[in-house]
Amino acid sequence: MHHLMRRLTGGLAIYAIMAVSGVAALAADVPTVPPADGPVPTASSWSFRFVPYGWVIAMDGTQTVRGRSVSVDASFIDILEKSDSLLALMGTFEARRGPLAFYSDVVWTKIGVESSNVRNRAPAPGVAGELGTSVSLDIEMAIVEGGVAYEVARSGGLALDVLGGARYWHQEAAVSSEISASVDVGDLELSGSRAFARSGSVDWIDPVIGARVRHEVAPGHELFLRGDIGGFGVGSDFSWQAVGGYGFEFGTYQGVTFSGVLGYRALSVDYSEGQGPERYEFDMLQHGTILGISARF
């Protein structure tokens, strides 16, 4: 099932890229530009948009920490029910002047996934004996993206932006397993009846390119579709992202226009470094619903 999900969401990213003239890239995660039929700010004025949002994350893929690999297949409900900690901080900001915009997006999350959704894939190097079947994974992760967007076409209710920038990843991960009395855990850390493989701090930067399409279906109501690709062996081997959704204005207060955002986001990355007991790999699809409130001024 998880392979089918990766293929379907990967196909969505490719479709998004083709739909916006073959340049691919998604950079921000919620609509951060004026409606397609709305007035574009003049060359002498700036507009700003800040969007705190939530991402209901599910995870599907492989995590390797110090040579120990596990498969992860966890829905948001699985993570919510089983995680000892579930924290997140997410938001995006864009400053626009005419067709030119500068954007940034931040995701920080700390989650845990328990044994029913984590399966051993490879034994830990240097371990003699059998580790238990109770496996868990804890990840603290930050994703920070910044770049430039430029509106290259506008026709009726449709507008097209091309984007380029960089996505910075920071991770700290730990895989733990129950141990028996006779097991030799090698260089794994011990805590009570569990053995831990901890990654320490892992960081990399992916260049990204892409595009987004906006369509105003009615005044104050907008559909959006975005896609990006990145990595190219500079940071990760390859990454892609696709976001689609709906934005709707619901009021203005003291010159600030507020909008709601409902959509779906999929972000996949394949990163690895090191060999043997020093190997770290994060080959993971993260996907789920996004919910946000936009403030434009």
Rank of each mutant, 00 (worst) to 15 (best):
P31C: 06
G38Q: 05
A25M: 09
W46L: 14
S44I: 00
A28D: 06
T42E: 08
M18P: 00
P34K: 14
M18G: 03
A27T: 14
L26P: 00
G38V: 04
A43Y: 12
D29Y: 04
A28N: 03
D37F: 08
S21Y: 10
A28M: 02
V20W: 10
V23D: 08
S21F: 01
G38T: 01
A24E: 06
D37C: 11
G22M: 09
G38K: 10
S44C: 02
L26R: 09
P39S: 03
S44G: 13
A16G: 15
S21R: 13
A24H: 06
A43F: 14
I17G: 09
A25S: 03
T42M: 07
A25G: 15
A36D: 00
A16N: 09
I17Q: 03
S45F: 08
A16V: 02
P34L: 07
P39M: 01
A43N: 11
V30H: 02
I17T: 10
I17Y: 04
A28R: 10
S21N: 15
V23F: 13
G22K: 14
T42P: 11
A19V: 00
T42R: 10
V23A: 14
A25N: 13
M18R: 05
A16Q: 01
P31S: 01
A28L: 03
A43C: 14
V20T: 14
W46H: 13
P41Q: 10
S45W: 01
P41L: 05
A19W: 01
P41Y: 08
D29L: 06
L26W: 02
A16K: 02
A19E: 12
A27Q: 12
P35M: 12
P34N: 01
T32W: 00
P41M: 12
A24T: 01
V23R: 11
P31H: 01
V40N: 02
A36Y: 12
D29H: 03
M18A: 11
V23P: 00
S45Y: 09
A27I: 04
D29P: 00
V20A: 07
D37G: 05
A16T: 08
A27H: 14
A43G: 12
T32G: 06
P35S: 08
A24C: 07
V40F: 00
A16P: 05
I17L: 05
A25I: 03
A36K: 07
G38R: 00
L26G: 14
V30L: 12
A27C: 11
A36N: 08
V30P: 02
D29W: 01
S44L: 09
G38M: 05
G22T: 00
A27K: 07
V40W: 00
V40S: 03
D37N: 15
V40E: 05
M18Y: 10
A36R: 07
P35E: 03
S45A: 15
V40G: 06
A43L: 13
A19K: 12
D37Q: 12
V40T: 15
M18D: 09
A16S: 13
L26T: 08
A36M: 05
V30A: 08
M18F: 05
A16C: 03
V23Y: 10
P35V: 04
V20G: 15
V33I: 07
A28H: 11
D37S: 11
A24Y: 06
V40K: 12
G38P: 09
P34S: 08
W46R: 07
P41F: 14
V30D: 06
W46E: 02
D37K: 15
